[in-house]
Design a protein around this nucleic acid. Structure first.
Lengths: 198, 198
DNA sequence: CGAAACGTTGACCGTTTTCAATTACAGTGG
DNA sequence: CCACTGTAATTGAAAACGGTCAACGTTTCG
């Protein structure tokens, strides 16, 4: 029964129904800025390939990685209803993004139920991810958190990225990884690559 | 222009349009469990009055407060697409919740654009809140984090609640508050009540 | 009135952050 | 093909920080 529900709104690119002129495809190279925190949102983006980092700059000037979006992810959905991007988006690798005009999306949302459903579903997933991320950050000590994060599959990009995601300094993360390897809890499969055992 | 967009989907209880039989009103007393993590989701809830705590229990058994939802908030929306509640919901005070049948909501979402829009908007807000919460937790040291959280208006309930929200032990939070008062950064306005000074 | 929960503060200890330094790659231009 | 440069990966040591334990005053509520 549940599986039926899950299929109500097809996941694969629900943005086909948008008018062509509302959709723009753009390629970005690593480190290139897609949009800046504070800018007036013109569009939201669908990651067609590659990955981008969503980060925020605190008042103190430190940067916080909020999310690393990969292929298939939707970003800046929250900007649909806000008058400024709440974070900065930077390409983490060469990436292809599909820009979706904000107005067009709002219009489509009001007329195409399937589209709206897909949007809700995407956002629900994101909420769950954030929840898990918050949960991870309460795990102490670092070794346990790293193991939990690793088991969850958060280590996809670099270890530094992983460290940011789970809220540790990269040094602490490396140390925890070393410890876990020494304890036989995880295995090192390459430079900056690890897998959880058991 | 933005204001117009914001008004596209009226915030006040967009659930009126649901069929009456899909809506159930229930009252809960403090500490009463609304639903348990792991249960199969039958409904999502709209907080009509009072407040509830959404918490999660990690593998290690520690609890993490994910969110404190107050009057007007929608909870368990993420469960719309998942086969189990991802957190436990407990009334934080006497509260009145409106239960919205999951199936009915899914159906309504597919047929009523306005409803779907309201849902998307609610979730967008939630996403932003989580993002901010994650951002807060990267702020070090504790004094800075507490000040930031206070300025953001996170201290609404008890200090212990606030401490949970920003990811500190309550002791550390109290100490930070004391320090901030001593520094003249904030002002104490009563037992467990503080306000940030410009 | 007593229990339970919150508010508050102090001290101690373990962890993490930070600072610092070294190694290892990957890309770039000569 | 190689030196050159920037970034990631690693590890060490010291200092700072926050968690935990402990204790006590205070408010709330049955």
């Amino acid at each position: 029964m549940i599986s039926i529900i899950m299929k109500n709104f097809p996941t694969p690119t629900p943005f086909d129904c948008l008018p062509p002129q509302a959709v723009g495809q753009t390629t970005f190279s690593r480190k290139q800025v897609v949009f800046h925190q504070g800018m007036i949102p013109q569009a939201l983006f669908h990651v067609a390939s590659g990955a981008v980092i969503l980060e925020r700059h605190t008042e103190a000037g430190q940067k916080v990685v909020l999310h690393r979006a990969g292929t298939g992810d939707l970003i800046a959905e929250a900007s649909l209803f806000s008058s400024a991007y709440h974070c900065t988006c930077i390409a983490d690798s060469d990436a292809t993004l599909i820009a979706l005009n904000k107005q067009a999306v709002l219009r489509m949302m009001a007329t195409n139920p399937e589209f709206a459903g897909a949007l809700v579903k995407k956002m629900a997933r994101q909420v769950q991810r954030y929840r898990r991320q918050l949960e991870l950050r309460t795990i102490l000590p670092a070794v346990d958190r790293v193991l939990a994060g690793l088991s969850d599959g958060w280590l996809q990009g670099s270890v530094m990225q992983f460290a940011s995601d789970i809220g540790l300094s990269h040094e602490a993360t490396y140390r925890a990884l070393s410890t876990l390897v020494a304890n036989g809890k995880i295995q090192k499969t390459g430079r900056g690559k690890y897998v959880a055992l058991s």
